[in-house]
Amino acid sequence: MNLDELYQTVILDHAQRPRNYGELPQATAFAEGNNPSCGDEVTVYVKLDANGEKIEDIKFKGAGCAISQASTSLMTVKLKGKTVAEASKFEKTFHDMMTAVTLPEYPQGFGDLQILEGVRKFPQRVKCATLGWNALKQALGGNSSHDPVTSENE
């Protein structure tokens, strides 16, 4: 087993120095993700443009393992400035990259999100990688609430 597939330098870097970290007072939507059995928590905030089509800003806040925090940090970097449609597509691709029997085709611009592909070899950790994305899906789905979503059933 090669540990560096799980904890790549980029992942450790994002875990220790998360990007887009903090609350977003102008957020138009947010959602919480919580995996109680691990104690991983993230809250994802998004600010959409006036038409509700483009992610103008995105931030997150949370605590937990390196994988959950780095994955969410990488997600925010990738999605800032993307359209909601693109974000949803990436979300689906990311999910397939983690859990589908065969690897998905990576859409254009998916880029370094692929770094997390190695996590699929560690089934116990898949839920860590998908937590932030599940929260994002919930937020984009338009029902902001403090009822957390979980990824423990991946």
Binding site: L3, L6, Q16, G64
Partner: peptide, 14 residues
Amino acid sequence: DGVHAHDVVEIANT
């Protein structure tokens, strides 16, 4: 400090 328990256990396992 600074390392979540699951990461500790994962690496210990290797």
